[in-house]
Design a protein around this nucleic acid. Structure first.
Lengths: 251, 251
DNA sequence: GAGTGGTCTAGACCACGTA
DNA sequence: ACGTGGTCTAGACCACTCC
């Protein structure tokens, strides 16, 4: 018997069901969720599976939890999936905006010290540097400077210059993104930024630096994105239990 | 027999042990961790406990994981604990810097619309607005505007004006912080910011807005912090499995 | 095919909150 | 005292990777 269907884990189905129930307002903000045992009975699964589902909602910031009382609904979160976070294109689409992009430069070079370290390559290894201007409904929003290791850069270099989403294309080629580390701070626009974004040189920009790895832990991308003021805000959720967020001194 | 000792969960001990082993360099970046069964045997715990420990390292961005292969070490993360993230004082101390603060204004007022919504209070409820200048080793770094619900504001108002850490004092009074939602973007310094921070009016500042709740899900704080450029960077970790991070359009 | 992580179950005991 | 979530165990089966 062929089982063509992709099986979703049980706990994800439970989580999805609870998530829709919450966002549909079945539990108001501040309401109490049913007990774990009750949910287990209701969904016909074990308590462990329910706990796995609830943990997912917890890290999304949808609910609290503490020993001794029922879980409490915090409210709808409006955070983004990993895909929307990683891909400008997906993010734009999820907002109903029309994403655009234009490659400004694409170079095949030997990695400098920082690139080699970030991408965990030997010094002098080949990398591809891509600079792109990203637009939202035609208006310039962000300048993206990305360095790819050779294997992935080759794929990027082979794509048409007007490719809207590299991420999606790369995924079609089997390049998977699994983890990312982000740093957000403020920088001044240099001459290139100023020309591309149409802002004064020296203007403050919101900068996100992103270091992504595939499921095997191999670095696949090292990027530096600079956003015009007023175009973007980053949001995140942290909790006593799970925190993957920090604050650093600059540089 | 009295058991005076506070018991730490087993899985946290295992996680701490693995964390130190990793940061001590026992596993180089890119190295493979022992299998779950092996770790379970080594620590004398069940596989479930090992998995709980590994999950913690995963959300810290220390390791990857995928079906079929051993977990791979990504490297030392340098993210902060929830406490260090929430408290300017704790953060500063963890860097070896000397935190300071000065209360600029403390008002007992009726909540405006935004405050009422954020703190989930009825419109017209009493809140406390506190404005403080925060310093690092004497140098101005950040202006903090915080709104507290009445119950907590009363505690804050009763503290000496030179109290360095409200957070720690509040915890001593039994006020616990459990979850927080953060938004990071860029704003222009207004007259007050400019005077306190000693920067030109209109200067770009890095802004963090923070909305914290206690373990019961009750809002305890709504704060807006404005950092001088070049003093701070925010870092975070996201992964395909667990993402509590997003990107929004401004406002 | 062997090894490994992902999912799931069933049951136990404990720590905390509330009444 | 009781209900609830947090921790922990033991065992099962599956999906994936790599040899």
């Amino acid at each position: 018997m062929s089982e063509g269907q992709q099986r979703t884990p049980l706990y994800l189905k439970v989580a999805a069901d609870l998530r829709t129930a919450i966002t549909a307002g079945e539990y108001g903000s501040g309401a109490k969720l049913p007990a774990e045992d009750e949910l287990a009975r209701r969904y016909g699964v074990s308590r462990g599976t329910v706990r796995q589902a609830l943990a997912a909602l917890r890290t999304d910031g949808l609910i609290t939890s503490r020993r001794g009382t029922r879980r409490v609904v915090l409210g709808a979160p409006r955070l983004h999936s990993f895909g929307e976070l990683r891909s400008f294109t997906r993010w734009a689409r999820s907002l109903g905006e029309e994403p655009g992009g234009r490659v400004v430069a694409l170079d095949r070079v030997t990695a400098n010290e920082e690139e080699a370290e970030r991408l965990r390559l030997a010094e002098g290894a080949i990398v591809y540097r891509v600079r792109r201007l990203r637009t939202l409904s035609g208006a310039p929003v962000m300048v993206e400077r990305t360095t790819y290791p050779e294997r992935i850069g080759e794929l990027v270099a082979g794509m048409p210059l007007d490719t809207v989403s590299y991420s999606e294309q790369l995924e079609l080629h089997g390049v998977l993104f699994a983890d990312a580390r982000h740093t957000i701070d403020l920088v001044r626009a240099d001459e290139d930024d100023s020309e591309l974004l149409g802002c004064p040189s020296g203007e403050a920009l919101l900068r996100e630096r992103r270091h992504s790895t595939d499921p095997a832990g191999t670095p696949v991308e090292w990027s530096q994105d600079r956003y015009l003021p007023g175009t973007v805000a980053f949001t995140m959720q942290s909790s006593m239990a799970t925190t993957a967020l920090g604050r650093r001194l600059s540089q």
